[in-house]
Design a protein around this nucleic acid. Structure first.
Length: 329
DNA sequence: GGTAGACCTGGACGC
DNA sequence: GCGTCCAGGTCTACC
């Protein structure tokens, strides 16, 4: 990171731990994000008003005082953000907003505590936040690129999208994908049959037909939001349920082949794939509006038992192949 | 409402 | 090196 760039401090909730809360969902392994285990820092490229900026986000240890009994010296310490160039005040405000979204800093210790009351298994380790993208558009594109393909394919598509269509390696804006040719997406980004769907999706964003505020508004029911999401190109029941959790609605489970594997191998469920899926759904229904988090952290714990703590995963090794089938289960 | 088959890619496998 | 098969979720046509 060159000298002379802006440096920001971002305050976090008292229970926030960067290494644990960033390395909590697969998207921390997808371009342009890059977790560096050796630095215990998250690097990414954000496309701001004045152009893309490379950022390095870390969390220092508390200089004095007692470490948190379970989560160590970093817990609750403000994040340090180092930028590759100087930012205007407006850009600093945008950067804070994007980092807050990625790391779910708007989920307070109280809301995480609510999850722990329903499922106390995660209280000790403190898990509760799930990493996501800086924008809803990126979250939805990443979800579509994770459908009907194995994880290394998703990793590759996101790298190509950033390299081919992104400015200086940032994730491409909706405007850029909206005016791309299908042949570019297919031929150079290797997204296959998803080409047309990604362009249509980007055009909906450009036309303002996808309103994140409406999707997040608690006055609108989960069922209403889920129904709307399924109308989006490339988004079926699995993708819609995944986008729900990315919006902070955790009652639905994105059921896929990993769910079936988990149901059989870990929960000991039997029957056909469809039956196992239904039984997995019933199993987690007891966690109500927190069902997804209970389900996901079980899956994540399984991956970590195979490959070690997620904060130690080298992105281009474990991180590129971390689904259960690739971990040799 | 349920089901079958096409969509597309990269990797594994057999020859 | 080539051909074939497979995994993966969405979408459409059809019953």
């Amino acid at each position: 990171m060159p000298e002379g760039g802006s440096r920001l401090r971002i305050r976090v909730p008292a229970d926030f731990v960067l290494a644990r809360d960033a390395c909590s969902y697969g998207y921390f392994l997808l371009a342009p994000s890059l977790w560096r285990p050796a630095e215990r820092a998250l690097r990414t490229i954000l496309d701001l008003e004045g152009g893309p900026v490379r950022v390095r986000i870390s969390q220092p240890e508390a200089p004095d005082g007692k470490p948190h009994p379970r989560w160590g010296r970093c817990a609750g310490q403000a994040l340090g953000v180092v930028c590759s160039r100087r930012l205007t005040r407006g850009e600093q405000r945008d950067l804070r907003r994007l980092v807050t979204r990625m790391l779910r800093l708007d989920e307070t210790s109280q809301t995480i505590g609510g999850f722990h009351r329903v499922d106390p298994r995660w209280r000790r380790c403190g898990r509760g936040r799930l990493f996501r993208s800086p924008t809803l558009f990126e979250d939805i594109v990443k979800t579509v690129t994770s459908c009907n393909i194995q994880w290394p394919g998703t990793v590759r598509m996101n790298i190509q999208l950033c390299e081919v269509l992104g400015r200086e390696g940032a994730f491409p804006r909706p405007e850029r994908i909206a005016r791309a040719r299908a042949s570019t997406l297919r031929g150079r980004c290797r997204v296959g049959y998803r080409d047309r769907r990604l362009i249509d999706l980007a055009r909906l964003f450009v036309r303002g037909e996808i309103d994140e505020a409406w999707l997040r508004n608690p006055a609108n029911s989960d069922e209403e939001v889920f129904r709307f999401l399924k109308t989006l190109p490339g988004v079926g029941p699995y993708a819609a349920a995944n986008i729900m959790q990315l919006l902070g609605r955790y009652a639905f489970l994105p059921l896929d082949t990993e769910s079936v594997r988990h149901g059989r191998a870990v929960l000991g469920l039997g029957g056909s794939d469809a039956q196992v899926m239904r039984r997995v759904e019933r199993h987690f229904a007891r966690f109500g509006e927190h069902a997804f988090r209970s389900y996901w952290f079980e899956l994540w714990r399984f991956y970590e038992r195979k490959a070690g703590p997620s904060e130690t995963w080298e992105p281009r090794e474990v991180g590129a192949s971390f689904t259960a089938s690739n971990l040799g289960s």
